[in-house]
């Protein structure tokens, strides 16, 4: 203890000194500062409260004004809307008659165009088949059974083989309506075949046929919200993916 410099009198002096300092600090520092802090907090809280009350009063006044204004506006807009309505109903009748006429004309024109396009594509089909056979003959150098070749090409365009639709072979499609897309228009017998098959397998009630040359060949069948892609374009795409 001696070597550490601890001695009792000095320790006691220090303790007494600490008590004196405590009294001084508690009375003259902590007391006033604490009072000041609480006062300041109260002042700030009071100020916030005043501001809040004033804000409320202003909000009330504003609300009142807004209400009066809104009423006036509602009345004005009602008058205007009445007038507009009357004018519109007169105008609308005229317009509706004109529009109905226009739309029937348009529909007719569209149907004509569609039929014409399908007709042209159907004609094209025969020519494509002949060209393809000629090309194949040239390439292969021998004449296959022409009938068989026609059948092959028909399969290519119609996606039909041995009397059933290829795409549907192993797909459990269910839905109310089916949509069949082919590259070229199907012949009536093909349509019948496809329709029968689709109706059998999917339980759909109606089948509609579309023509989209972009799929190149085969069929794309959409039943309900499912699409079976049996098109040549789709197969080529799949091939491309595989070869990457």
């Amino acid at each position: 203890m001696e070597a550490l410099g601890i001695n009792l009198p000095f320790l006691l002096v220090q303790i007494i000194n600490l008590l004196i300092v405590y009294t001084v600090v508690a009375k003259w520092v902590v007391g006033p500062v604490g009072k000041m802090l609480t006062q300041r907090r109260e002042t700030i809280a009071q100020g916030m409260e005043d501001a809040r009350v004033a804000g409320e009063a202003r909000a009330n006044a504003e609300e009142e004004a807004a209400k009066i204004k809104a009423e006036a506006q509602a009345e004005a807009s009602k008058i205007v809307s009445d007038a507009t309505e009357r004018a519109q109903s007169a105008g609308a009748e005229v317009k509706a008659a004109a529009e109905a006429e226009a739309s029937t004309a348009k529909d007719k024109a569209l149907a004509n165009v569609e039929a014409e396009r399908n007709q042209m594509l159907g004609d094209l089909r025969g020519q494509v088949a002949a060209l393809a056979i000629a090309g194949a003959q040239k390439l292969v150098g021998e004449v296959l059974d022409e009938k068989k070749q026609h059948a092959l090409l028909n399969d290519f365009f119609a996606g039909v083989k041995d009397g059933s639709v290829v795409v549907l072979a192993d797909a459990g499609l269910k839905g109310d309506s089916a949509e069949v897309t082919s590259a070229l228009p199907l012949t009536d017998s093909e349509q019948d075949l496809v329709k029968k098959d689709v109706l059998d397998k999917s339980g759909a009630e109606a089948v509609s046929f579309l023509v989209d040359p972009a799929i190149l060949g085969g069929l794309v069948i959409k039943v309900g919200d499912k699409v079976m892609d049996g098109s040549v374009a789709g197969k080529l795409e799949g091939l491309r993916q595989n070869m990457r």
Binding site: V13, N17, V21, V24, V33
Partner: peptide
Amino acid sequence: FVGMIGADIAVLLIAFFVNRGV
């Protein structure tokens, strides 16, 4: 011990100035 007196004086000065400020 002198250091203690010094620290006491410093605290007293703090108390004085804070009190006057308040």
